[in-house]
Design a protein around this nucleic acid. Structure first.
Lengths: 129, 129
DNA sequence: CATTTGTATTACAATACATAATACAAACAA
DNA sequence: TTGTTTGTATTATGTATTGTAATACAAATG
């Protein structure tokens, strides 16, 4: 998986890394039960510190996106149907509200917004088994 | 307009303030050409420093959401039809992709996502003249 | 001219970010 | 067992961001 970090961004490196892995999981670039690189390996590849990668992994683990074995390293979490919560978390809902507000001010109406979301959704191949 | 700041949030105060004003404009709580409080007044009301409010105003001005006269203070920018760009900025598009990715992993499909967006859009009364 | 507006400057404290160098605990292989 | 690899914890250091504080400045208005 290709990961590109912007050093001059206002988004912290560990957060950029976390975000790209989440998108990778959703788009299927990273498959369930797929093994992620070790923190040391990924840190070396990206040219960042070990603890920066570790911080991203710890975040993903806390959010349930990956599972971690001491020896086997980090793996993408396999989805289960029962945790299919059809609601957005308050944080996500607030972020979505802010995006829609900005879109509305730009004159984008609901149907236009939907047509902007459609191709994004089309990329998300993540499916429940 | 009611503004509530969370001091223990990871989002900076000036960014929380900026976000709530944007939502206020989109929802019509703040109307076009409406005068915003002065930086000193709003800072006092919120219990924060003058420069924190100023930072939010400067950001909103740079983004085109408000206009600022030296004497008259800050006002909500009136919309014009010609700047109705039907595309999202790269930054917004990336944020939207991240939200959709997380929604997809939670098992939310496009139609469900649309039904989550609908009530949010319904609150946005911002219209072009 | 005097007042009010946003803005700039400087200093300071607290926190967050990222790196660096180690070291530790758990899990597995030989 | 012994050794290796894994994520993790610790400590230290430097830098950047955030927020406050006090003050001053420039522009617009009455």
């Amino acid at each position: 998986m290709v990961i590109t970090l912007q050093l001059d961004s206002d988004v912290p490196l560990y957060e950029q890394l976390r975000n790209q892995i989440v998108v990778g999981i959703a788009t299927g670039v990273l498959e369930p039960r797929e093994k992620l690189p070790t923190v040391r390996q990924l840190a070396e590849d990206l040219g960042v510190n070990t603890m920066t990668v570790n911080k991203a992994y710890a975040l993903l683990k806390q959010e349930g996106y990956i599972v971690i074995d001491r020896r086997h390293g980090a793996k993408v979490n396999a989805p289960s149907e029962n945790d299919s919560l059809q609601e957005l978390s308050p944080k996500l809902a607030q972020e979505l509200e802010l995006i829609i507000a900005q879109a509305a001010i730009q004159g984008i109406d609901p149907s236009r917004f939907q047509s902007l979301c459609a191709p994004i959704f089309a990329k998300m191949t993540y499916r429940y088994t």
